[in-house]
């Protein structure tokens, strides 16, 4: 395939398939081009898999500062791993798993510093990302914005495991189950049933509030 000329928006044209076979074969080719020194391929990898890394970090409920540091560390390390990668198409799983390990280290470090296992300490509320105000310019957009906000609030209030799983699943483009498995250290086979349970729980909450 022609590599080196893949536009940075390559992922947006790819049809959605659960398991991400299309995107992921693309990832293998991009990784191989990046190994050959193609900066455009690297950029496409960052744009295609960056949201997955960010989702994994967010799923682990780090503070913003920690989240930023982990995100950067993962990509810095990937520059070192690139030339030794054995299965380029599994780059997403490598990134997800590396992000998970760094997140767990942050939790360990926080626990030691405050000498507590109090989970609230790890539940530092995020200050990032309320950039939606600019979108609320028309009434229609305002209503839509309100709906999105309510949906997001209901999602944030989900129990730990559900919120965690869904936060990874809703990376864009959607991750493969192998990547989700690497991100959360859960068996591929348990992702589907758990996803269904969690989405139903979310729907029930929305219905209870009359949001759906």
């Amino acid at each position: 395939m022609t590599i080196g000329t893949i536009p940075s928006a390559a992922y947006h044209d790819v049809p959605y398939t659960r398991g991400g076979t299309v995107e992921r074969s693309e990832v293998g080719a991009l990784v191989r081009s990046a190994v050959d020194g193609d900066a455009a391929a690297w950029k496409a990898i960052v744009e295609g898999l960056g949201p997955l890394v960010w989702s994994v970090v967010r799923a682990h409920r780090l503070s913003d500062a920690d989240a930023h540091e982990v995100y950067q560390t993962v990509w810095f390390r990937f520059t070192q791993h690139l030339d030794r990668i054995r299965e380029p198409e599994k780059a997403g799983s490598w990134l997800a798993s590396t992000a998970r390990h760094e997140c767990l280290k942050v939790h360990r470090q926080a626990r030691r510093l405050v000498l507590t296992d109090d989970p609230h300490v790890l539940d530092t509320v995020s200050q990032d990302g309320e950039p939606e105000q600019t979108l609320l310019e028309t009434e229609e957009a305002a209503a839509q914005g309100e709906r999105v906000r309510r949906l997001w609030q209901a999602f944030e209030e989900l129990g730990g495991r559900c919120r965690q799983l869904l936060r990874v699943l809703i990376a864009s483009p959607p991750p493969s189950y192998q990547e989700v498995s690497a991100a959360l250290d859960i068996a591929v086979g348990s992702i589907g049933p758990m996803r269904q349970r969690c989405l139903r729980r979310l729907r029930a909450r929305l219905e209870a509030r009359g949001t759906v």
Binding site: W54, G129, W152, L166, I170, P174, R195, L199
Partner: peptide, 16 residues
């Protein structure tokens, strides 16, 4: 629902 949530995440919690 998952897709709607995905759009919400892209809007409210994107990669900085």
């Amino acid at each position: 629902l998952e897709e709607e949530l995905r759009q919400a995440a892209s809007l409210l919690d994107p990669v900085p």
